[in-house]
Amino acid sequence: MGEAAKASESARTITVEMHDNYYEPESITVKPGETVRFVIENKGALVHEFNLGTAQMHETHQRSMQMMVDHGVIRGDHIDHRMMEMDMGDGHSMKHDAPNAVLMEPGETKEIVWRFGGATDLEFACNVPGHYQAGMYGDIEFE
């Protein structure tokens, strides 16, 4: 599905706006092997995620996101950073630090630079519980 890259390697910037609970645009077209700089702006009133992955990866990730909600890390319109850093007892915390994803509070702008691999079925999605199911995801189309 590709890998994280440096901003200098990207030829193209795609701005993705987060709203409650949908993205604009709702689908993105890339070329196989292309490096894209995504500028993601949370224009909604709630916490949202931008996550690149397959539908299956999103499904798995949704389980950990559910835990973050259950443990009070994601609190609707803000993130409890103290809870997020907290050691869960087995050396794990609920940090959200995968290279293919950003978790954002309202008003935040973040970037992901991604070099796509070959054409596969990819989606960008918000895995905050319920958001994906409400329709907050879009297809990555390969040219």
Partner: peptide
């Protein structure tokens, strides 16, 4: 109540 589902995990 905000943590109403704390133990769910």
């Amino acid at each position: 109540m905000g943590h109403g589902n704390m133990d769910q995990g």
